[in-house]
Simulated scan of single mutants.
Amino acid sequence: MNSPSTPTTDAVVLTERRDRVLVITLNRPGVRNAVNQALADAVDAALTDLEHDVELEVGILTGAGGHFCSGMDLKAFPDEGVPRVADRGLAGLTRARRSKPLIAAVEGAAVAGGFELVLACDLITAADTAFFALPEPARGLVASEGGAIRLPVRLPHHVAMEMLLTACTLSAADAARYGLVNQLSGQGKALDAALALADRILANSPQAVRVTRQVVEATRGLDDHTAFTVQDPLTTPVFATDSAAEGSRAFCEKRPATWTVRPGR
């Protein structure tokens, strides 16, 4: 892990622990953080650390140099192909199975595969100058790392189809208006907004957060009857935990809860 006081500025990905939060920064600013295989592997390694380190509970993905990510590095594409990692997709994220919340903090451009990385996150903060696009058809490509799958269920159908078929851009303000972005911030403040959002998550039971996210993933697209059948084995054990008892006591005693059990312990 890189220390905030001694950053490795030539690394393609920077990581910084902020208490129980891991900030992952794409660090190829000269090419708007375009994803080549080296960056993909480094993001995958950081996400693996987030997943397996029991002291970490929330991740934030952002970009250096005033932009989030311009997508796949087209100069590297002829030699490297799509920079996927194993079965986890672009940069080890777009097809990954995760258990901990991940927030995208977006400045500037989040386009093509960069936008697909954003769509793979659970929450999104964005500077009011940020913008999103899926221009793959203009390059003879398809948004195959989640863009064509996720966008039509995140935006009104015809808005999503316009983005997918015409390669038009969507401003952060419009993305927020449609509910795609959780919080808008001033330019340069998207990471601060993401850290504040992470603090709100950290105030809750880590186990409850983790299981809630698991339920959302496991029941997506199911009818209600099937969804409850899938959900109940996941949620029933939570009600018998120390965290559930502590949450109830804290509510009755009008005090903040003290969570002693973290996911993975």
Score class of each variant (00 low, 15 high):
A120E: 00
A120F: 01
C121A: 11
D122R: 00
D122H: 14
L123I: 12
T125Y: 06
A127M: 10
D128A: 14
T129F: 09
A130T: 11
A130N: 05
A130H: 02
F131N: 08
F132R: 01
F132V: 09
A133N: 08
A133W: 01
L134F: 10
L134S: 07
L134G: 11
E136W: 12
E136A: 13
E136D: 14
E136L: 07
P137V: 11
P137S: 05
P137N: 05
A138S: 15
A138W: 03
R139S: 15
L141M: 15
L141T: 11
L141H: 12
L141N: 08
V142C: 11
A143P: 08
A143M: 04
S144D: 13
E145W: 00
G146Q: 00
G147S: 06
A148S: 14
L151E: 00
L151K: 00
P152V: 12
P152S: 04
V153D: 03
V153E: 08
L155T: 09
P156M: 00
P156R: 07
P156Y: 05
P156F: 04
P156Q: 05
H157F: 12
H157T: 13
H158K: 12
H158A: 13
H158P: 01
H158E: 11
H158D: 13
H158V: 06
V159I: 11
A160V: 05
A160M: 07
A160I: 08
A160Y: 00
M161T: 14
E162W: 05
M163N: 00
M163V: 10
M163T: 05
L164G: 01
L165S: 14
A167D: 11
A167L: 02
A167G: 09
C168M: 13
C168S: 13
T169G: 12
L170T: 07
L170V: 09
L170Y: 03
L170R: 03
S171Y: 06
A172S: 12
D174G: 02
D174A: 15
A175C: 08
A175R: 01
A176M: 08
A176T: 10
Y178P: 01
Y178T: 10
Y178L: 04
G179N: 05
L180C: 09
V181S: 06
V181T: 10
V181R: 01
N182T: 15
Q183R: 14
Q183I: 11
Q183S: 13
L184F: 06
S185G: 09
S185N: 04
G186N: 12
G188A: 03
K189V: 13
A190Y: 06
A190L: 05
L191Q: 06
D192M: 12
A193V: 02
A193D: 02
A193R: 10
A194Y: 01
L195N: 09
A196T: 11
A196V: 10
L197N: 02
A198E: 07
D199G: 10
R200S: 14
L202H: 04
L202I: 12
N204P: 01
P206C: 09
P206H: 03
P206D: 05
P206S: 03
Q207L: 15
Q207P: 00
A208C: 08
A208V: 14
R210E: 15
R210P: 01
